Simulated assay, not measured.
Amino acid sequence: TMILRDGMCPGLDEELVRELRAADIKTVEDLVSSDVEEVAQKCSVSYKALLAVRRVLLAQHTAFPVSGADLYEELLSSTAILSTGNPSLDKLLDSGVYTGEITELSGGPGSGKSQVCFGVAVHISHHLKQRVMYVDTTGGLSASRLLQMLQAESSNVEEQMEALQRIHIFHAFDIFSLLSYLYSLPATIQQVCVSVGGGSVKAVIVDSVSAIISPILGGKQNEGMSLMIQVAGVLRRIAKDFNVAALVTNHVTRGGGGGGGEVQAGLGLSWSHVPRTRILLERTESAGTGHCSVRSATLIKSSRQPCHIKEQFDLQWWSTSKEGSAAKRKLDDSDSR
């Protein structure tokens, strides 16, 4: 409830505030719900002037109803779908990662979570010409690896450098530095939008969210849980308010106690409600055939597609697809000559 004060709106001066208080009208709610004619007589003020003040306060402080259709139209106009650059993953994600939402990649060590994050960052920065805020919490991000991927996309050094400049990297090794960075992101995103180089921030990647959160969970205090909920809340707000796709990675655990249970995404039940979409990455059984970079991706949570659909993809996709086709084109050209 807003207390009436001098200068709150045109016409509401110190004298009128004093008169209204004497008539037991102390808040915006009091004035809006009162009989204006009666209050004007009590306070010996102009009915027209008081009515004008009431109208302005109503316009400033009332939550006007919005229809579901209007909300849906707003959603359609603001949501963008960003391709990951990999057809198999895009198929599982119903075309790609969606802005305004949190998408999670979960998997064990060596399942390819970071590689996929690198590939998505490179695709968004090079092909979509948009910016990516990349939070590395494990020290696993390598600029040379990003450059190698970009070299597979383009042989133009200037294009490679421009794409690298659109990937903004932050290293966070504890929960407090992660939270501090996330809370400062809105201002950074607004700054980046007006800076040179083109492109607005379209993705925030946190690899890995569990590396920082899982060590603080458990114990007698609930501090760890509270900090985890703060991370979830600020990520959600950034995704929605700035029309950004949030992509996070998580570890896996085995249910059933004995280690032989079903593979589950880590961080427990409270975190499971945070991502809108969840994909489980696993090594495939085809390692013996020489395709050690092949991974399987299973959709384990989605509001758009049936769960448990599975796709196989090659982690080398982002590093070799364009390079291979460029080499083939050169060969074809030389043959034709």
Results as ranks from 00 to 15, higher is better:
K129S: 08
L57A: 07
D241P: 00
F176E: 15
A23W: 07
N222S: 10
M149H: 13
G288Q: 12
A239K: 03
C193F: 02
T249E: 07
V204Y: 04
L51I: 06
G68P: 13
V201K: 01
P109I: 04
C117F: 09
C292R: 12
P215Y: 07
E223N: 11
G198V: 00
C292A: 10
Q148K: 06
G266M: 06
V32Q: 09
G288R: 12
S200D: 11
D241E: 11
R278Q: 12
V294W: 06
F170Q: 14
A40S: 14
L50F: 03
A245Q: 01
E311S: 03
V209L: 07
E38N: 15
R145T: 03
A327N: 14
Q305E: 13
S83Q: 07
Q41P: 13
S111P: 02
Q305F: 04
S321Q: 14
G324L: 07
K91I: 00
S77T: 14
L164G: 10
E101V: 09
P306S: 02
S67E: 13
S272C: 13
F64I: 01
A327D: 14
F118G: 12
S286G: 08
D207K: 06
S106N: 12
V116A: 04
W271A: 06
A143Y: 15
V132L: 07
T84Y: 00
V231Y: 10
G110Q: 06
S77L: 12
T277D: 14
A287M: 12
G258L: 05
P186N: 00
Q165L: 05
T103W: 05
H61T: 06
S177K: 04
F242A: 06
V39Q: 11
V28S: 04
V201R: 01
R55G: 03
G108H: 01
L16Y: 12
R276S: 14
P87I: 01
I238E: 08
E323R: 03
V263N: 04
V194Y: 05
S200I: 00
G259I: 00
A287S: 13
L58C: 05
S114I: 01
A59L: 04
H127K: 10
C9N: 13
I124R: 06
V116S: 05
S114C: 12
A23G: 05
R304N: 14
A265R: 02
G261F: 06
Y72T: 14
S200K: 11
K91P: 00
V28K: 01
G100L: 00
R18V: 11
L51W: 11
L146E: 09
S67Y: 09
K301V: 09
S67F: 08
V252E: 01
L331W: 05
G256Q: 03
V66F: 02
I25H: 04
L82T: 00
S180F: 13
L227Y: 11
K301I: 04
G108A: 03
I216W: 02
